[in-house]
Simulated assay, not measured.
Amino acid sequence: MAANDLSAPLGLGKRKLLSLPLGLVGAGLIAIIVTTALVWIGVVDDPLGGEPTAVVRLERTVEGLSARDIGVANVGAEGDTIEGGEDADGKKAADEATLGPRFEPAPQEQARSQQTADAPASSPVTLSIRPDARVQEEGPFGSLPKVADNGLRPLDIYARPVDTTFPNIPRIAIIVTGLGLSQSGTQSAIAKLPSEMTLAFAPYGGSLDRWMQQARRKGHELLLQVPLEPFDYPDNDPGPHTLLVTLTGQETAKRIDWLLGRMTNYVGVINYMGARFTATREPLERFLKEVTRRGLMYVDDGSSSRSLANEVASGARTPYSRVDVVIDEVPRAADITSRLLQLEGIARAQGIAVGSASALPVTVDELVKWSRDLEERGLQLVPVSGSIDRSVR
């Protein structure tokens, strides 16, 4: 035993220090740092957390942007408006617009028609609401339609243009009748129905001029309903000023003037009832000759199988069309849908079909639903003036 072992107190002897390689210690420290960094990046959402940040709220507005900062599409000519908008002078642009004649346009109308045809398909069509002085004259009961000195007809001026991009596509015209009698029904039909549908107004309605303007601003082509004598008259009376087969020529002319003077800006007339009148040749001839003389079209409502309207219109050279299907003869949704499918079949078989309907709420709702995907089904909705070409002009 060494001397120092005996002389040193227990535990106070000289200790040996732990000796490890310095390289191993350094590698361990680096591994700890790298592992900590990887865990931080993988677990924490913002690996740059703690650095200064700023959040900018983007508003959905164009205030403060110059015109060159925004790309604008579908801009019309200066002063043009859509859907009854106002120009810089505060006047309705639609008030000044007139539609060119259907067959031989005068230069100014042809230019306007071409401008309408060149407009994007999505642009609404707004029709003129002011009577055109060239095709109007004062009658004993109001303004009456007439053929202009240059041969222009109200039918030519007030017709809605038809898109002829696809000339061979089957076409359907829908006429909604009985408007002007119920304020709520008329307003609903004008607001909801597609503008390609033709609206027919009863001559007994109030504020017909106001309704005419609203309908034309929405792009609807218009007809005037004319009451004609049914077989069971007077038990079944269409109303005052009904055209009867027993009337003299002078009385008939007086009643026609009263009826045609009830409103303006319409392309033609459609019968209201009239099974006896349309089956009696002589009074029907007098009536259709007057319709032709005044530059209008005639639409047979298709309610009578005994009607001579097609034959008589051909002899009188009256622009003519007829209704193929009464859509809401049974005013139930399922029946209306069935009739619309029938109308589609006629259009595909014949190239064009015409349907008529009343302005009942259920009918308006079904027409709106039916028309939504009409083009996707390979069909085109047109105004009734677009159906004249299947018959005599």
Rank of each mutant, 00 (worst) to 15 (best):
I270T: 06
L243W: 00
V245D: 08
N265W: 06
N271V: 03
F277K: 02
E290W: 06
I256G: 01
R281E: 13
Q250D: 14
V267H: 04
T264W: 08
V269H: 02
L288E: 01
V269C: 03
E285S: 15
A279L: 06
P283C: 06
P283Y: 03
L243Q: 01
L260V: 02
E282W: 14
I270P: 01
G274D: 04
K254A: 14
G268I: 03
T246H: 14
I256Y: 01
M263Q: 09
T248K: 13
R276T: 08
T252P: 12
Q250P: 11
T278V: 13
V269I: 06
G249W: 13
L247A: 12
F287M: 08
V269S: 02
R281Y: 11
L259K: 01
N271Q: 06
E285Y: 13
R255H: 09
G274E: 05
T242S: 05
T252S: 15
P283I: 02
I256T: 04
N265E: 09
F287R: 03
M273N: 09
K289D: 14
V269M: 04
R276F: 07
P283D: 04
N271G: 05
G274L: 02
T242M: 05
T242V: 08
L247R: 11
Y272E: 11
N271M: 06
T248F: 12
L259N: 01
K254E: 15
D257S: 07
I256N: 02
F277Y: 09
G249N: 15
I256P: 00
L247C: 11
R255F: 07
I270C: 06
L260F: 09
Y272A: 09
V269Y: 01
D257R: 07
E285I: 11
W258T: 04
N265Y: 07
E285K: 14
L247E: 13
M263R: 11
P283W: 03
E290I: 09
L260G: 01
R255T: 04
Y266A: 03
E285Q: 14
F277I: 03
T278W: 10
K289E: 14
V267K: 02
G274V: 04
A253M: 08
V267G: 03
L259E: 00
E285F: 14
G274I: 00
K254I: 15
D257M: 08
Q250T: 15
A279S: 15
L288I: 06
R286K: 13
E251Q: 12
R281L: 12
L284Y: 02
L259V: 01
G261V: 01
V245N: 08
M263N: 06
K254Y: 15
E282Q: 15
A253C: 09
I256E: 02
T280V: 05
L284G: 01
A279I: 06
A275Y: 04
R276V: 10
Y272M: 10
T246A: 14
I270W: 07
R286G: 10
V245P: 03
G268D: 05
I270E: 03
T264M: 10
G261P: 00
K289F: 12
M273T: 08
E251I: 08
M263F: 07
G261F: 01
R276D: 09
G249E: 15
D257I: 07
Y272V: 08
T252C: 15
L244M: 09
T248D: 13
